[in-house]
């Protein structure tokens, strides 16, 4: 067998490996999480966290926006009850994501699902949702690999941030703070299946922006998601042709 044949063979085996496919799907999120995790790590160190505390929060909490808010509140000497309650509200949206994924993962081992759900984020949820919608028989192992890959990206970014965080660094100067909205933009594009989804996205976006003026703790996100998803159901009952 020539060298190229061996390579072809190896590549074929790899491509068929469900873990490998999942890692490839998760890799862009891994890369996208590096600058955001880095920015978090820097801010945590500036707030007086030790490197271990900085990384430990990423490992245990693993929720970007809540970690930024949590670090800010610790720096402002906010009480522990307020911090924890705020975190709960900010992350309550995962309830909707978990429910949305659960229906497509019926019959899976509950212990594995419990572990899987620990790694649900806005981004891994978005990637896995599109994947499940386009392909009904994605292996659970592949979805899990997406989650673990993204998780490792977040932890790696946090470690890098913790390593350089002792020196003052301006995250805005390098555009690190825009990695998150940019990731939301591309993930939203992935969701826009047809005109109805585009309309729902615009209405949800406008409503969420308006509600953010009067609500705090990410409640505008939860209320918008609940209402505009319901609007989607109403529209398709009203006009069954538009699905």
């Amino acid at each position: 067998m020539s060298n190229t044949q061996i390579n072809e063979h190896a590549r074929f085996k790899l491509a068929n490996n469900s873990v490998f496919i999942g890692i490839m799907k998760g890799l862009p999120v891994f890369v996208g999480y590096l600058p955001i995790g880095f920015a978090y790590g820097v801010l945590a160190m500036q707030a007086g966290f030790t490197a271990i505390e900085t990384v430990l929060m990423s490992i245990m909490v693993y929720a970007g926006s809540a970690q930024f808010i949590g670090v800010g509140m610790v720096a402002a000497a906010t009480g522990i009850t307020t911090i924890i309650l705020t975190t709960f509200l900010v992350n309550l949206r995962h309830l909707l994501m978990s429910a949305s994924l659960a229906q497509r993962l019926s019959g899976k081992d509950k212990r594995k699902l419990a572990l899987f759900s620990y790694l649900i984020t806005d981004e891994s949820f978005a990637v896995n949702s599109v994947w499940l919608r386009n392909n009904n028989d994605v292996a659970f192992r592949s979805l899990f690999s997406v989650n673990v890959t993204a998780y490792l990206g977040w932890i790696s970014g946090s470690i890098l941030g913790a390593l350089v965080g002792a020196q003052p660094i301006n995250v805005e100067k390098y555009g690190l703070d825009y990695a998150l909205p940019a990731m939301f933009i591309i993930l939203l594009i992935f969701q826009l299946e047809n005109r109805k989804y585009i309309v729902l996205a615009i209405i949800a976006g406008v409503l969420s922006t308006l509600l953010s003026q009067v609500l705090s703790h990410n409640l505008h996100i939860i209320i918008t998601t609940v209402l505009i998803s319901a609007l989607g159901v109403v529209i398709s009952r009203w006009k069954p042709a538009v699905r």
């Binding site: 806005d122 978005a126 993930l187 989804y197 949800a204 976006g205 918008t224 998601t225 505009i228």
Partner: peptide, 9 residues
């Protein structure tokens, strides 16, 4: 509909 609405929100 949750993926599209939550990301837009």
């Amino acid at each position: 509909y949750i993926p599209v609405t939550v990301l837009a929100a």
